[in-house]
């Protein structure tokens, strides 16, 4: 074995650590930077909200960007209208003689409680809409739909297809239910029974 291949394995001593003190200024700078950082984070953290992503900066900003409640109700109504368009058609035009139109209908644009009553309890027999006569049976949804859902679908049909009537609130649906119960009526309306409880304007 040659000398070259042998290693000098003599050991160095174990290291030791000195006791030099850290300058106080380091701690001061750390505290200062930490303070500034905390302040900045506090300013920019958007209240730790999970829905604020860059480049937006605050929950209020994001909330302002979100669609308004009215728009949301409208789009909910649009989805619910899928249950109605089989008869009233996607364009709200109805079918001559059987299913009355919703676009431009004075029933839809008039007293919200009256149209709500129709949706809640259904309607049968001959009805006159925009001067034309229709005759069929409308299915009631009052048993299964909530006030919010009825209000949403009414809001939708009152604003779609050029209709420009106001939003319907869930409270109005509740009032309609109460008024119907008070009148003692049950089952689908006819145009006459409806007119006694919810007179046309």
């Amino acid at each position: 074995m040659s000398e070259k291949a042998k290693l000098n394995v003599s050991e160095h001593a174990e290291p030791a650590a000195g006791n030099t003190q850290m300058p106080v200024s380091v701690m001061v700078v750390l505290t200062l930077l930490g303070y500034i950082g905390c302040y900045k984070v506090d300013n920019l953290n958007a209240n730790f909200a999970s829905n604020v992503h860059a480049p937006f900066g605050s929950p209020e900003e994001v909330a302002s960007l979100a669609p308004s409640e009215e728009e949301l109700v409208f789009s909910q109504g649009k989805q619910l209208y899928a249950n109605c368009q089989g008869c009233h058609q996607p364009n709200g035009g109805g079918t001559p003689g059987t299913f009355p139109p919703l676009a431009g209908s004075e029933w839809v644009l008039g007293d919200p409680q009256r149209i709500a009553a129709v949706v809640l309890n259904g309607l049968g027999g001959e009805v006159v809409v925009s001067g034309k006569t229709y005759n069929n049976q409308m299915t009631p949804v009052g048993e299964t739909w909530t006030d919010e859902q009825v209000a949403a679908v009414l809001t939708f049909i009152r604003k779609e297809w050029g209709n420009n009537a106001g939003r319907v609130l869930p409270e109005e649906i509740a009032q309609t239910r109460a008024k119907t119960a008070e009148s003692g009526h049950s089952g689908p309306w006819t145009q006459e029974t409806l007119n006694t409880t919810f007179p046309a304007e």
């Binding site: 160095h12 001593a13 174990e14 290291p15 030791a16 650590a17 000195g18 006791n19 030099t20 003190q21 850290m22």
Partner: peptide
């Protein structure tokens, strides 16, 4: 260890 010095500062 190899430079055979003390580590400058424990702190």
């Amino acid at each position: 260890k190899i430079t055979q010095r003390e580590l400058y500062s424990r702190q």
